[in-house]
Amino acid sequence: MTVTLSQKFIAELFGTFVLVFMGCGSAVIAGAHVGNLGIAFAFGLSVLVMCYAVGHISGCHLNPAITISMWSTGNISAKDTVAYIIAQILGGIVAAALLFFIAQGKPDYSLAANGLGANGVEEGSPDHYSLISGLVSEVVLTMIFLVVVHGSTSKTNQNVKFAGIAIGLCLTLIHIVGIPVTGVSVNPARSIGPALFVGGRALSQLWIFIIGPIVGGLIGGGIWKLYDRK
């Protein structure tokens, strides 16, 4: 069965929507109940379940950093890369819009005070980490993430059926460590949606969460290529 580009587009849009809605939603709606550990698992579990829901359609990238890294290693065409990135960004925006709508149903909700799970550094960082610390953490964490993504989905990996579990748990680990620093992006689409609605500092610092993950993703793909068995 041939999968069309439009089917892949829909799969990436929906998968990214679920990731951003459930991940950021865990912070905005359930954060006070589940804490950082719960938020970390919400992001990881979102990717894990989407891997098995849409992975057979699009590969379940849900992240421009993954798509660009896959393109750099020859695993996806330029045409599909552009379509995937557009779908991912749209999915993140729709998720942020719906989350904002739901959050306003709580009488004491304030966009300025409670946000939408946007990422940030300095005053926008949960623990007030510097811009340099935030940028380096995004590069390093995305690098680790992409080595896991490439390695676990490689055709030479005999355990490829378990790739979704490895990728989901890796994203959980990344959030456990990185939430205090930036709130964790490692995914431009995850950052763009909330930042567009929050505006201000979140929007002015958005470049960190676009450039950092892309650079980290390219480095991760390069590292994987060093030891990949053809």
Rank of each mutant, 00 (worst) to 15 (best):
G183H: 08
A95W: 09
N119A: 10
D127K: 15
P188F: 02
L173Y: 01
S191H: 01
L131Y: 10
P180G: 07
I176F: 05
V82K: 00
Y84E: 01
A163H: 04
T156Q: 15
P180T: 04
D108A: 07
A118Q: 15
S152D: 01
P107E: 06
I192R: 01
P126K: 12
I102W: 05
R190H: 14
V186Y: 11
E138I: 01
L146G: 10
T156F: 14
P188C: 00
A95L: 08
I93E: 03
T81P: 12
G105I: 11
V184G: 07
G178D: 06
V140W: 11
Q158N: 08
H128F: 07
A166F: 06
N159R: 14
L169K: 00
S110G: 07
V140T: 13
G115S: 10
I174S: 04
V177H: 01
P194N: 06
V184A: 09
G164A: 01
G164K: 02
A166I: 00
S191V: 05
F101G: 06
V139S: 07
I93P: 02
A103E: 04
V181R: 05
L99E: 03
S125I: 03
L169D: 01
E123M: 09
I132V: 15
V177F: 05
S137T: 09
A97G: 01
V160P: 12
P188A: 02
P107R: 07
L173C: 03
G193C: 06
G178F: 03
S125V: 10
S191C: 04
A195V: 07
K106V: 09
V140D: 13
A87K: 10
Q88Y: 00
T81Y: 13
G178H: 04
I176P: 00
N114P: 06
L131K: 10
Y84W: 04
A96F: 06
G91L: 12
A195T: 05
N114T: 05
I89S: 07
A195M: 05
M143S: 10
G120Y: 11
Y84P: 00
G120F: 11
A113I: 11
L131A: 09
F162N: 08
F101K: 08
H175D: 04
P194W: 10
K106W: 08
E122M: 14
L146W: 11
A87H: 09
L146Q: 13
A95F: 08
A112C: 08
E122W: 13
P180F: 05
S133Q: 07
L141G: 06
A113V: 13
T142C: 14
A83G: 11
A195I: 11
Y109R: 11
H175T: 06
S152W: 02
E138K: 00
H175W: 04
E138A: 02
P188S: 03
L131R: 09
A113C: 10
L173K: 01
V186N: 07
A95D: 08
L146N: 12
L171F: 14
F100I: 02
L98F: 15
L98H: 15
T81A: 14
A166D: 02
V186Q: 09
